[in-house]
Nucleic acid binder design. Structure first.
Lengths: 134, 134
DNA sequence: GTACGTAGTACCCAAAAGGATACTGTAAAA
DNA sequence: TTTTACAGTATCCTTTTGGGTACTACGTAC
């Protein structure tokens, strides 16, 4: 039973939530999808949007997304190489999901200016946006 | 930079998608939230819904959800012990997110009867539901 | 008197995820 | 002539995650 999460299904009988999360699982997949949702990007363009990712990790995550069929990879046989990543039609169907995730993040997750911690504010105690800019 | 994913924020500047995923990250959180969304459950009730989870893991995931403020834990000082887990008001705000995840899972992820693999069907090639019941 | 159900802990171990660093080849730019 | 950009690989290592097993306390049922 020590299988990678992505291969496990029978543990979550009939749970479509976990089924979906399986495809979003991976440290950079969320951000990658978020950016590609807004348009095709080349490898290094994407890399510049993710300051802390290493080449190895970015490649790995992209390959997994490609294997899932959510992202397409197009290689132009030129020198220097040109490789473009884009959402597939299937990937596009994730839009409402990404939207929902983004909306919740915007509404309930706050990052301190130092960028160290996530904070959740409950309904009433919603921190004013100004507090973030101080 | 080798920090647990949950503590990393500066790697994902302004990405609310990752911010949200941070809280859903963990092998059993998705299913747990899915079930608690439908009502309060005791520890062992939840355990029975997740055939493969171990006590240790269930406890761990619940504690993390509690720490995030998404789930509440109520202990009744009786013997044998009675502990109830429920969504907090904040946790409830995740409903549209869970809904979106569940909807996508229902529409695009297919599990073979053997429960071994996940399959994605693209728009047109949508497998008939009957195929699952054969 | 033994077993069962409740809700856990403690301890140890394997697997997976993620990260650091160095390396590739070509062409154009400096 | 050296450097830069491109899009990666390869190798090694650490951290994190998740799982296995055994153990606790208490009261009730058999």
């Amino acid at each position: 039973m020590s299988l990678p999460r992505a291969k496990l299904v029978k543990n979550f009988p009939g749970c479509p939530v976990e089924a979906t999360l399986t495809y979003l699982d991976g440290k950079w997949k969320g951000v990658i999808l978020f950016h590609l949702m807004q348009g095709t990007l080349r490898f290094n363009e994407l890399r510049r949007k993710l300051p802390a990712v290493t080449q190895r990790m970015l490649t790995k995550q992209l390959r997994e997304l490609e294997e899932s069929g959510l992202v397409s990879r197009t290689v132009y046989p030129v020198v220097p190489p040109r490789v473009e990543y884009a959402m597939t039609p299937l990937g596009m169907t994730l839009e409402p999901v990404i939207q929902a995730l983004a909306a919740w993040g915007d509404d309930y997750v706050f990052c301190s200016p130092e960028g160290r911690e996530l904070r959740l504010a409950s309904d009433g105690l919603r921190a004013p946006i100004a507090a973030l800019e101080a």
